[in-house]
Every structure is written in structure tokens, then in C-alpha cells.
Simulated scan of single mutants.
Amino acid sequence: MKIIRSKSFTGERAWAALDIANMNGITTRLHWTDQPYKWHTNDGEEVFVVLDGQVQMRYRDLGVEREVLLEVGDIFYASVGTEHVAHPVGAARILVVESEGSV
């Protein structure tokens, strides 16, 4: 059993992660960041939940770049092949559920 107070989690670097669980190859991790990630495409599905802060999520849909501002409680689902990049607005805490070893 674990109790994690996500609001108190910080990292020494952008995209620092706290591993919460690995269930049959699906990982759940808490990330802290104040810097953008990089454009990437996961080899599996990804669920991205904003727990604290705001994140400008940019993604490509049929070759067109789009963006949406994610706020606390918002969920971004990236299907296989969805190219995307997260840009936090200030510091943010994000829960990510994805295949183990995914980018």
C-alpha cells in the first residue's frame, strides 16, 4: 500500500518521476516538471492527467499541429502513433500511465 501526496512531490530536474506502480507492463508514474518535454510518439497508448498546474499540450492530427491547454483534472489520451509534446505553464505535476519503457 502507498499513499502519495502529489502536491509535495518535486524533482531535481525537469520530468523527474516517482514510480507508483507497474501492473503487467503498464506503468503509473508521477512527474514533476517546469520545462517542456520533446516531440515524441509512444509505441503504445498513453494517459496523461494534470494533477497540479497547467500544461499546453501540442499534438499533430493528420499532419496539422494543434494545441490545447490542460488544467487540473484534465486528461489527455494519446493513441498509438499520436505525436505530441507537453509544455508546462510554470511547474506542473502529471500522472502518466503507459507501457513500461515507453518514451
Rank of each mutant, 00 (worst) to 15 (best):
H87L: 09
Q35S: 05
A14H: 02
S102W: 01
E46T: 13
G11T: 08
R58A: 12
S8W: 01
D61L: 10
M23D: 13
G90V: 11
M1I: 13
I94N: 05
G11L: 05
L95C: 04
D43Y: 04
F48A: 10
V68A: 11
G25D: 07
S102E: 10
E98Q: 03
R5Q: 15
G101Q: 08
A92P: 00
N24I: 02
I3T: 11
S99E: 12
D74A: 13
D43H: 09
I20C: 14
L51Y: 05
Y37L: 14
F76C: 02
H40K: 03
A91C: 07
E98W: 01
D34R: 03
E71P: 00
R93Y: 10
M23R: 06
E83L: 07
R66P: 01
S102C: 02
A91Q: 11
R58V: 10
D52N: 12
A86K: 00
V68T: 06
T27R: 02
L95T: 01
V49D: 10
E67C: 14
G63I: 13
G53H: 07
K2I: 14
Q54H: 06
L62A: 14
Y59F: 15
D61M: 06
R66C: 11
A17Q: 02
H87Y: 11
L70K: 01
R13K: 08
I20M: 15
S102D: 12
L95H: 00
S6E: 08
G44L: 14
G101Y: 06
E98N: 03
L51I: 11
L30C: 08
N22C: 07
S102Q: 04
V80T: 09
G25Y: 02
Q56F: 06
L30I: 07
P36V: 14
V47N: 08
P88T: 03
G25L: 07
Y59M: 05
M57N: 00
V97F: 03
I94R: 04
D19S: 06
T10Q: 06
N22Y: 02
K38I: 10
K2V: 14
R29Q: 08
V55K: 03
T41D: 01
E71K: 15
D52I: 09
V47G: 06
V80F: 11
D34C: 05
V55H: 03
G73S: 09
K2S: 12
V89E: 07
F9C: 08
Q56N: 15
K38E: 13
L70P: 00
G11S: 10
F48H: 12
A92C: 06
I4E: 13
E67S: 15
E71R: 14
I3Q: 13
A16D: 15
V72H: 00
S6H: 14
V64K: 15
M23N: 08
R93C: 15
P36M: 14
T33C: 03
V49R: 06
W39T: 12
V80M: 11
A91S: 12
K38G: 10
K2F: 13
A86M: 04
G73Q: 12
D34V: 02
W39K: 08
K38S: 15
S102Y: 00
I75M: 12
G25P: 00
G81V: 04
T82A: 13
Y37Q: 08
G11Q: 06
R66F: 05
L30M: 07
T27V: 13
L62I: 04
I75G: 04
I75T: 15
Y37P: 01
V50N: 08
